[in-house]
């Protein structure tokens, strides 16, 4: 295994896969959503606590999935804590654009910080949904999609 793959499976991603952060349920969450990727069976719940000022005070996740989906959930939760709902939506769009290759984080301005590690996913079309499931589910929670969301 190789060189190309190490761009996908960066150490930080492998670390978050082994030890996912915020891997728990928020019992009194103001927002939550169930997200599935029917093609590969990734299955996550994202929980958020948003205060009256629109700030995400706490965010967490539970579920099962591959290293990319688990690390993406984990890194997303660490990134969004303390951010506003508006910021979260902007980050979602930037993240989406990065993994489908329409935004190059090395050349364009963005607010993704460490999340730009997922740039390598754009070389793996079959894996982009693994990386984006966390984000779709988070936005689904904000939009109160009570029936859950699906990447298909």
């Amino acid at each position: 295994m190789s060189y190309i793959n190490s761009e996908l499976y960066q150490q930080v991603i492998l670390d978050h896969n082994r030890k996912p952060r915020n891997f728990r349920k928020i019992e009194d969450a103001t927002h939550s959503c169930h997200g599935i990727n029917p093609l590969c069976g990734d299955d996550v719940y994202v929980y958020l606590n948003v205060n009256d000022a629109g700030v995400i005070e706490d965010v967490s996740f539970e579920g099962s999935g591959c290293a990319i989906s688990k690390a993406s959930c984990s890194l997303m939760t660490t990134h969004l804590k303390g951010k506003t709902v508006e910021d979260a939506r902007i980050n979602f769009k930037e993240f989406q654009n990065m993994i489908i290759g329409t935004m190059d984080p090395d050349k364009e301005e963005h607010h993704l910080g460490k999340l730009s590690l997922f740039m390598g996913v754009r070389e793996y079309p079959s894996r982009t949904k693994c990386a984006s499931l966390a984000w779709h589910t988070m936005v689904g929670a904000l939009d109160r999609k009570f029936d859950g969301i699906s990447t298909e």
Binding site: M1, S2, I4, N5, L8, Y9, C40, G65, C66, A67, I68, K70, Y124, R127, C130
Partner: peptide, 14 residues
Amino acid sequence: CVHPHDIVTCLDQD
């Protein structure tokens, strides 16, 4: 320790 989808991606590299 490895999800099947990650196995597939790694094996594909070989």
